[in-house]
Amino acid sequence: MNKVQIQPSVRRKTVGGGVPLVEMEAVRYSVEDQKILDLPYWKIQKGEHSLVLGPSGSGKTTLIHLMAGLLRPDRGRIKISVQDIAGLSPAAMDRFRGRHIGLIFQKLYLIPSLSVWDNLKLAAKFAGLPFDREWADSILRGLSLAHKAKSRPSELSSGEAQRAAIARAVLNRPKIILADEPTSALDDATCDNVADLLVEQASRGGATLVVATHDTRLKDHFKSRLDLEGS
């Protein structure tokens, strides 16, 4: 695997050509003068599946949060689908995030008082999009969750809950799916399964996929990779 050192703390694997879906340039993020992430340049092509690999404290989660517009960089540009998200107002960023970005976290954050189906409906509601029942149904069928649509998260196994979180992330046909440590707490078999599902669901909707993890078991599932080193 060809790794290009672009900063002492950041390495990336080369990616393909064309207009990138994600382009990050001279992005720096720090907390109280302590540098958390310094990324000179990184781009991801549309439909590409990319792995961000690095140990704890390397800035993986920060990178995902920056790409999702949950954090604002100290400086630099973050373009998603040509839109410089760092320049969006908070309200516009909320709308953009809801419509174009699907998020998955290690902790799944399914709303416990709602059924799986209602969790999906909520994703459409907050994105300001109509709820496409057929599409939602096909996602659940694709994830073998159709029979659990009316179940609450507490009634799901951990694998089912993980799949429900994936279903919610892909519901609005996002341009990009960002997953932060989606497999860290899973055994090998489940880890492979979740990685396959992520890739499969992203491909199905034509979405770009970025998975940030310290879990080296995922290496083989992704052709493109950005390595972050611990500070």
Binding site: A68, L70, P90, A91, D94, R95, R97, G98, R99, L103, F105, K107, Y109, I111, P112, L122, A123, F126, A127, G128, R168
Partner: peptide, 16 residues
Amino acid sequence: RGDLAIMRCLGASRIN
């Protein structure tokens, strides 16, 4: 807090 955070991730505004 987690629910509220994920709602923001889903596109909910602070006002929402």
